[in-house]
Structures are given as structure tokens and as C-alpha cells.
Design a protein around this nucleic acid. Sequence first.
DNA 1: CGTATTTGACCTGCGC
DNA 2: GCGCAGGTCAAATACG
Length: 409
Amino acid sequence: MEGKNTPPLSSLSSPPQIFSPPSPPFSLSIPTTTIDDLNFLDDDTFLENPLPDLVKEGDFGPLYEWLGITDEDAPPVERPVKRSLPPDAIVPESFETVAQSESSSFFSIPSNPDVAVSNNNNSSRVAGKRPAESVAGDGGNASPRSDEPDATMRLNRRSENNIPKLAFLTESESDNLEDGYKWRKYGRKTVRNSPYPRNYYRCTAIGCNVKKRVERWLDDPTHVLTTYEGLHLHGLPPIPPTPSKSFHLYNNCTTGPKPDRCSCSCRCKGAVAVAGAGEQNRANNAITSVHLGTVSGGSGVNDGGSLRIVAGENEFNYNKHMQNVEQAITPIILQNFMLSAPQTSLNNFTPMTIINNGHYQSSLMNVHHDGNNHRQDCFGAGSSNGGAEDLFRNKSTGTGLLEDIVNFS
DNA sequence: CGTATTTGACCTGCGC
DNA sequence: GCGCAGGTCAAATACG
């Protein structure tokens, strides 16, 4: 029986810690960035092109236009993720990266070549010992039960090599992380040399072929490896009502100074006092920064939230009121951004993940909503500059500089 | 009773 | 050609 050797989560050597520093062997290169560089929030374009204007249900055209993707490049509706990527978009064959929720940025994991992030084209096949593992669609889906002709299936299978994939690690007790989309489980397999099974999910949205694989990370069973394949061509399902519409943003610094300004009973561990953040590098097509912060200030209330991604010539700005930050930072949005931008290098990005208890976390950012307005409490700095507090903070230094999330290639 | 999950069978690609 | 491993299907089962 498949998965019968899977140990129950309760038997793991150590219970998953939602907020804990990363563990080796993850490596990270953090460049030097000064606060003088962190000024993009003064940019008037910061509030332009909010995501809802770029991505509407069933119409990703504006997004692709903004991303500089032609209609031909944009994924068709039926096979949304098929796309030829330009040569310069190829992820090096040796590029093995995984974003880990509790560490800084994407990072290389040489010790495990079976896991990677890839733009997925034929040249970007995930480097690994078992190529069959690394490319979507290598397996079944060609069952004689299907009405699809073999030739078509084979063509599709080849084309599926272009399916963009994104993998990241999340420290979680749950094997199926809530990410805003609804998934149907369609398979489960034991993984060779691993006691943990791999589960296969499909997006339940009609016509959506996005899939994800979820498996427990062998090197650290407290982490779950989630691999997404494809792009959602639809909006997020309605977000269930939450107990609160206010948010409380805080940093998860566990080693640096902790002003501990938060007076509430939440798990806030410290304030982030560095106001303004950003780093733009338009010299190449790499995502150089991801930023979440407030966009209007002075009042100290939950007045706004914004998300900004800079990737070469492209700039992604998402601005909604704070009560919608929940959606603003939905990782799938970020995935769609990354996966939609074939010219974008993925190795400079800190993805964010939703974990299933109402907390959001990225490698260096956590968002928590607890029914009260504690934003200023937890930010410490307020928002008098009208900009955004830097939510990204170096776990070692506690400085909160954007260098935490910038990793120049 | 409708929906979601489980799970054994089956398919494909790859390496030898 | 064969065996292996990963991926998928779909009937059976579980669940609310």
C-alpha cells in the first residue's frame, strides 16, 4: 500500500515551528545594499497598475501586456502554460533553487538535485539524478481510457516541458498548505528513498490545468515542498470571511533586536523600524525586490497595503487597502507574476506563502491578523513618511534592510 | 446524497 | 526489450 510507511506528523522528531530560523544546509548570498538605495516608494508609479487592473478573471491580457509577453507567448486558454520562452529566459540547467519560507530568498540546494525551481523549457530541465521526476507530464496522462489521440498526447507531453514550475519549501505541519486556490487531490505516490508520500493536486477551477505536488522535505521533515506547475488563468476564489479585516504586520526576526512594541496577545516578535525599502535593478531582467508595506501614512491605522516587485524593466505594483493585504500577498499572485515573466530570473525573489492558521509568512515576512489594529504597534515606525516600512529584515542583524531579499545574479 | 479522498492499476519515459 | 520510477486515472470508499 502506498504511503503506509509514512510516519505520522506527530511522530516527527521536532514539531514544526512556524517561526523559526532556517536550518542548514541552505545557503544564501546577501549582497550589500544601503538604505539610500531603498527609495522606490517615493516613486509616483508605485501605486500604478494594481493587480486587479492587470488580472481579471478570464483575462490576463493586461498582465501579459504589462509583462511584455506577446499573445503568442501568453499561454492559451486551453493549455495555459505552454509557451516558448526566449533563450535568455532559460534557467541554467544547474540552477537548483527552492524558496524556503523561513530562510532568505531563493537558494541553492546542491545536496538535493531533485528539487528545483524552473521556468521549464527544454533547456531548463531540472538538474537531477532522475530526469523523469523533474519534468511535468512525463508520466501518465496518456491512458488508453482517454479519448485523446496518442499523437496529440505526445505533443502535449512535449509541450508540457514548457510548463512553468515553481517549488518552494514551507515549514508547516500541514501537508497541504492553504494558498488561496481550491485543489482536488488526484494522486498519491511513494517517493523512492523517502518515507514520505507525494501528493498530487489539480486546481478545481474549470479549464485550469494548474497542478501542484506536495511532499515532505526529506532533509527536514518539518518542511513541505510544494511544486506548482502552470499558471492560473482565473482569479482567486473568494476569500472566506476572516474574523478581522485589520492586519498586523510584523517581522519574524528571531535573533536581532526585538522592540516588542506589540501590546496585543498575538505572536508578534518584534517591530520593523526601517521605513521605506526597495532596490531597483533595471540593468537586467531579474526580480530585484519584493516589497510589502503601507502606502499612505501618518494616521497609524491600517490604511493601505501594497506590494511591489521589480524585475528588470518590469515593475509590479499592487496596491489595495490593508484589509485586502491578505489577497495582495497571496503567493499565487506572486507565482503568477514570476511564471508569467519568462524574462524574469527567479533567483532573486522571496516568495510568500500562506500557512493554514491565518498567518502568512515569507522567508522574512510575516503577516498576522488578529482582529485588532496593531499595525503601528508592531511596525514601530508608523508610516509618517507616507511610504512603507520595510518588512524584510535580516534575521542575523535585525537591520531590516532590503538586502535580505535582494540577491543579485 | 453529493463531494472529496483513497488507492490499485495502468501508462510513459528513461536507463541499462 | 525489460525493469524501474514517476505520474495519472478512475472505481471504490469515506465523509459531511
